[in-house]
Amino acid sequence: MPVDRQAIRATRRAAISIVLFVALWELGARSHSWLVLPTFAPVREALGMLGFRSERLPWIGAIPAPSNVASAWLTMLHDAAYWRSWGESSLRVLFGFGTALLLGIPVGLVLAMSRTAFGVGFPVLELLRPIPPLAWVPAAIIFWPTQELSIAFVTFLGAFYTIVINVIGGAKAIDPRYLQMAEALGASRWNVFRRIVLPAALPSIVVGAVVGMGITWEVVVAAEMISGGSTQAGEAAGGGLGFLIWSSYVGGSYEQIVIGMISIGIAGLVSSALLRKLGALLTPWERLR
């Protein structure tokens, strides 16, 4: 198959660029070991003139090397606390995102289908939406009885807005001829909703969910950093991957920072991919375009 050759070439290119990236990272991070060699004297002079330290490269010389990160990670894999962080963040994401989905879809559909509901609800939504979810953290901590609920609330907000906006967009964009045809054929309002509006809006709902999932991870990590960093008296630390990054920074183990970052990246990737797969299963007709 000719497509295979293109795929092989693309994979080869991707592999080369990633290997190159990691190699440069390794070299840069270990610059303190090779910069001292006499061959690089002019480089050291240039750095000195520019006002940088001359025993290692600026910026990249200070970050942990991928080899160190990898070995630290291998050790961490045996650490139960690491996997607990994964679990804690994932649960928060699941809870916040799930609630956003359960509330956001009906709210979006109601706003799209009822002009009165739209007139009443949409202005309030648009007033609150510009406030970034993270700006809600102090208010959430004050308002909600537990720290966990405050994080859940902030997480929920992030995904909620996205899902509602996408649902409204999808429902409003339904070709009016479908609705006319359904009406002409004698369908009840409930039938129109269940067999026309809902499936027609489903692709947009999936898009809203996938984007919302990404936002949820962002917010969870930040919320964990913020509230984990300021533990309330008597309450256990919030935990999670965001907290892992923050406490690694505070504790000075920079390899763990990178491990935390990459872990979150993987988590976001996997959850988005799973959602997209689920969305494709729910909308089989979209794949065939």
Binding site: M181, A184, G186, N191, P199, A200, W285
Partner: peptide
């Protein structure tokens, strides 16, 4: 019943389900 200028089959239903939609709806 109208046949519009551009096809207005319901994209999320199979051909058979599209046909059965009217009777099902009633």
């Amino acid at each position: 019943l109208v046949l519009f200028q551009e096809a207005a089959l319901f994209p999320w239903m199979t051909t058979f389900d599209n046909l059965l939609y009217g009777p099902q709806a009633r």
